[in-house]
Amino acid sequence: MGRKEDLYPGFRKENVNSMNTTKATPILVVENIYKAYGKTEILKGVSFTVNKGETKVIIGPSGAGKSTLLKCINQLIIPDKGRVFLNGEEVLHSHSQINRFRQKIGMVFQNFYLFDHITALENVEVALLKVKKMKRPEAREKALKELARVGMKDKAHLYPAELSGGQAQRVSIARALAMDPEVMLFDEPTSALDPELTGEVLEVMKDLAKEGVTMVVVTHEMGFASSVADEVIFMEEGKILESGPPIQIFFHPQEERTKKFLSRISELYGELNRNG
C-alpha cells in the first residue's frame, strides 16, 4: 500500500528548536521517575528535558510505561520517586498546588474523554469558567477561537456522541489548548481512531508543532514522528533505551531492541493496511 515509502516522509530539514540551539529554555524537566504497582515496576528511573517549542515523540512497545510516564508528569499518577519541574518550578501533587500545574500541562487522551453531557463548545468552555473563573462572553470567545484552531468551529454546538472520533479528538485538543498550557501531552492520540480519521488529528498536531507549541507525544505513528519530532525517545520496560533526532533513531538505531521494535512496527502497519 505504499506505506513503507510513507513511513518516513519529509524529515525536518531545519530543527527549529533542537537541542543544539543555544537559546533553548527547558520548559519541562522530568527527573528520575519511578513507579511501581505492587511488585510490578512500570517506570524505572526516567529522565528527560523538553525545551520551549520542542516536540518530543516517545515510542516503544506496549507495556513500556509510556502512558504511565505521561500521567506522572501531571500527577494523574503520583510517581513513587523522582521529580517534575515545569518552568523551573517543582510540580507538587498537594491539593493546594496541583490544580495550578495541571492547567499549565495540557493532556490529550487516547479515548478523548470529552465530557459527554455538554456540547463541544461547552467542553472547551467549562474549565475556563470553573477553573479560570472567566466571564461567560470572554470564555465563549476563547473557546470558539480554540475550536477554530482545530477546525471544529462549525461543529461547536454538537454533543460528543454526535462527533466522529477524529472530530472528538480535535475538540479534546482544543479543550486542552484553551488553558494556554506551557506543554501539551498527547497519549496515543490516534490509537483509538479508524485509520482514515488519524490524518485530520495528525494534521492539527503538525500545525501546533509549527506554531511552536511545546509537545510530548506518545504515538505509534512513525510518519508523524519522523516529520515532526525534534527528538524521538525509545522506551522499553520502564526505561529510556535511546533517544536522538528522528533520522538517527529510525535509520541508525544504536540498540538492537530499537531496531527490532521499528521493524515490528512497520510490519504491523503493513498488516493493518492489508486488512483494511
Binding site: R102, Q103, I105, F109, Y113, L114, A176
Partner: peptide, 12 residues
C-alpha cells in the same frame, strides 16, 4: 476517563 479529563484541565 471523565474524572481524569476533568482533573487534567485543572479542576479540583
Amino acid at each position: 476517563g471523565q474524572m481524569l479529563a476533568a482533573l487534567s484541565v485543572g479542576m479540583s
